[in-house]
Design a binder for these strands. Sequence first.
DNA 1: TTCAGAATAT
DNA 2: CATATTCTGA
Length: 354
Amino acid sequence: MGENSRQLNLDVGSIFVPKTISDILTEVSMMHDFSKKSSNLDFYVHSLEEEMRKVDAFKRELPHCMQLLRDAIETLKKESLRWKEREMGPVMEEFIPMKGYSEEGGRAKLSNDFSEKKNWMSSVQLWSTPVHYENQDSVLSLRSRHQEEEGSGFDSQFQGCNNIKNSGGAFVPFKKAPGPGLSIKEQKRDAASAVNGGLSLSIPVAELESESPDLISVKEPSSFLRPQLQQRKQRRCWSPELHKRFVDALQHLGGAQTATPKQIRELMKVDGLTNDEVKSHLQKYRLHIRKLPSTSGGTRDFSWLAQELPNKQVDAHSGSPQDHLNLGGSAKRGSGSATGGDSMEEDEDDKCES
DNA sequence: TTCAGAATAT
DNA sequence: CATATTCTGA
C-alpha cells in the first residue's frame, strides 16, 4: 500500500512528529473507506505501534507525539475490531445499522476523536531545547545536555531565546491531510510561528512502512527531506543574561584572549549552547574590546561591555541559581575602580592603547 | 579527528 | 550590526 507518491502538505505550527509517523497518519487520514478491511487498519495499527516503540525513548521530549500515537492507535484498533466483527460474521454485537455508519459514520467518529486532540495538539511542540545539533553534523543528534548540572533552573531562563532550532529533517509538523478522512482540525499556528521557517512546501511522501528498526528514525527517515534542507540554524540570541554568563566565564578563564570557546561553553553551563555559538560570540567580543578604546565616540553601545566590570556582589540576589561557579573565588583583582575607567579585564596581551 | 581562530556569508 | 558557516592550520 505504500507506493504512494502523493504530496504531503506540511505546514508550520503543528505538532512535531517524526516523519515516518507523519506519513502513516497522513496515509490513514486519506484512506477513504477504511471501513473496507480491518486488515488495512491492522496494518496501520501495527506501523504506528512500531513507531511508538521508537518514540518511546523520547517520550519525555515528545509527549504530544506520544499522546497522538496512543490516541491514533487506540482509535484505529477500535475501528479495526468493529470491522473485524462485521467481516467475521454477524456477531451478536448490536450491529449498528450500517446506514449512517458504513462510511460516513466511521469517519465521523475518528474525526471527532481527533478533533478533541486539537487542544493539546495546538500547543505545538516542546522539543525545542533538548535537541540541538552540535557541530556541523546536520543530523539531529538527540542529546540532552542537562545532566550533571543543577543549573536547570537557569537554563529555562534562556529557553525563550534559544528556542526552536530543530526542524532538521527528521521531524515534521503534522498537519491534517488534504484528503478526506479524519481531519485533524486546523492548527492555530501558535506563537511558535517562525518554527522552522521554510519547511512549508509540499514534500513528496514516500513509503510508509516502518523501516530501520534500529534507532529511532530520527536519523533520516526519508531521504528527501535531507537534501539541502540544511537550513540555517536558528539565530541564537545573546540576551544580557546569557552574555553575562559569557563574560563571567571569560573572567574565570583569564580573559577573552586566553579563554577558548569550549571552555567558555562548559563554564557557562547553558543548556543548548553550542561551541560554535560561543566561538562566534567570542569572535565578536574580541573584536569589540579592541575597538572601543574607552571613550570613543561615546555613543557606541558598550552597554554590554559594561558588564565586564569586576562586579563582585553585584546582583547578589535572584540572579542565577548557579552563581556558585562565579563567586568562587576571589575577588578578582582588585579592583576597586568600580567606576573607573577601563572596562577591560586584565587582558594580558592587549596591544591596546591607553 | 577535534578545535580554535580568521574569513566569509547571510 | 550580529550570528552562522566555512576555511585553515594546529
